[in-house]
């Protein structure tokens, strides 16, 4: 049992499958959620899996450098800025419209 587990340590492809799965779940949430805050959470999932991908490639393709980790730090900083602006927009929108349902936001359509 221990031997089997020791021989099957996760390779690069396993890590990539994991981050792709997380990204696809985030994509599903982005497409199906009606609440704007829920959409923001799905975007966070996708950004997180992208950052994970950077670190995975850093570890397996160039372990002597840290460029992938620095990219992941930049992704985290950009995600923080995005959440701040998104939350401000949703709060202002709620004050004007009384809802954050994206189905109801079709003012420019008519």
């Amino acid at each position: 049992m221990t031997e089997f587990l020791a021989q099957h340590t996760p390779t690069l492809t396993h890590w990539l499958y994991l981050s792709t799965l997380l990204f696809s779940i985030g994509l599903y949430g982005l497409l199906t959620r009606r609440n704007a805050v829920g959409i923001l959470m799905a975007v966070e999932l996708m950004l997180n899996s992208a950052a994970l991908n950077f670190v995975v490639f850093n570890r397996f393709c160039a372990p002597a450098t840290v460029d992938g980790q620095i990219m992941a730090i930049f992704v985290i900083a950009a995600a923080a800025a995005e959440v701040v602006v998104g939350m401000a927009i949703f709060v202002a929108l709620y004050r004007y419209r009384g809802t954050v349902d994206v189905n109801a936001m079709d003012t420019m359509k008519d």
């Binding site: 609440n35 805050v37 923001l40 959440v83 709620y94 954050v100």
Partner: peptide, 10 residues
């Protein structure tokens, strides 16, 4: 995000 949920009463 929790603040956003509460402030918009989602």
């Amino acid at each position: 995000i929790v603040f956003a949920v509460m402030l918009t009463r989602s």
